[in-house]
């Protein structure tokens, strides 16, 4: 099972990589089509009225293949997590290898959730590299299966803790991608990218999905700490980093309804929030503390 998990990890990574290549070609083809349309060459628009680019039939079919490959990556990585769970007897929470794959899986899952709803493949152009970076990172850390240190022997609670964390982090990655696209465009939109209003809505939806999950993640973390260490909160850097993340996204939800904070400032808060998410995630590498895992060396 352990071997199977590794093969699935490699296959899922390759599939995601190919999907990303597909998205790049999709974008290039879309830009070309847009330029031709601007030059007066007659074009048929793609099936979906909501697709960001003015897309010809070729663009549309490239997009379809890219999406298929990405879904394949999502499913195979999911399988890898399942195999790994069977092999280790616990959820993917015991080291950075397991958690990085879970995080990447969460990003792909969140991305395809939003692609199905909004059909904005340009977001994939930003979200997939983040997932791939995590998968690449996972490839560099030890994947060996070690027994759990006593503190981590709380299978049920920690599995749910990680599951809620990856839903939250996955959605935050989508919000990050949307906020980035929002900020690079001048008012009114440009380059055939999704309209700023649509990006604003996607980012908001992503935070609406992710924020309660982050809240639940922090609460479950406190529950675990209370059972294992006797305090629900000890200002451990991992805890304080998650507090920063939670506060920033809470601030974002307010910013959207405060005059003078909508738009650019809210989008910048999303970038900051994603920065805090990464700090929380990689925190164990340089903070130490209660969360320092056995697998880190």
């Amino acid at each position: 099972m352990g071997k199977l998990a590794e093969y699935a990890f490699v296959a899922g990574t390759l599939s995601t990589l190919l999907a990303l290549v597909g998205y790049v070609f999709y974008a290039l083809s879309g830009v070309r089509a847009a330029r031709m349309a601007a030059a007066g060459v007659p074009m048929s628009t793609g099936g979906m009225g909501t697709v960001g680019f003015t897309s010809g039939p070729r663009t549309t079919s490239i997009g379809h293949y890219a999406t298929l490959l990405g879904w394949l990556g999502l499913i195979v990585l999911g399988a890898s997590l399942v195999f790994r769970t069977i092999a280790t007897g616990h959820g993917p929470f015991s080291n950075m290898y397991e958690f990085s794959i879970a995080f990447a899986f969460g990003i792909l899952g969140a991305y395809y959730w939003f692609e199905r709803k909004y059909h904005q493949r340009v977001l994939g152009l930003l979200a997939l590299p983040v997932a791939l970076a995590l998968l690449g990172y996972a490839a560099t850390v030890p994947a060996s299966i070690e027994p759990l240190v006593p503190a981590l022997q709380n299978n049920m609670l920690l599995t749910v803790h990680v599951a809620t964390a990856i839903v939250a982090y996955g959605s935050f990655t989508i919000a990050f991608a949307a906020a980035l696209l929002y900020l690079v465009q001048p008012e009114g939109g440009r380059w055939g990218l999704p309209k700023p209003e649509l990006l604003d809505e996607i980012a908001y939806r992503a935070i609406v999905v992710g924020f309660p999950f982050l809240t639940l993640t922090v609460v479950l973390g406190a529950l675990w700490a209370n059972v294992a260490w006797g305090t629900y909160w000890s200002w451990d850097p991992k805890e304080t980093a998650s507090l920063v993340t939670w506060l920033l996204y809470g601030a974002y939800l307010h910013a959207r309804v405060v005059r003078g904070w909508r738009g650019n400032k809210a989008a910048i808060l999303l970038l900051a929030g994603f920065g805090a998410t990464l700090l929380t995630y990689f925190g164990n590498l340089f903070f130490g503390g209660l969360h320092s895992y056995a697998g880190l060396g």
Binding site: W235, L243, L247, L248, G250, A251, A276, F287
Partner: peptide
Amino acid sequence: LILALAALSLVGT
């Protein structure tokens, strides 16, 4: 207030 708390917590982190 929320942003100020976030900033101080970040420094503390």
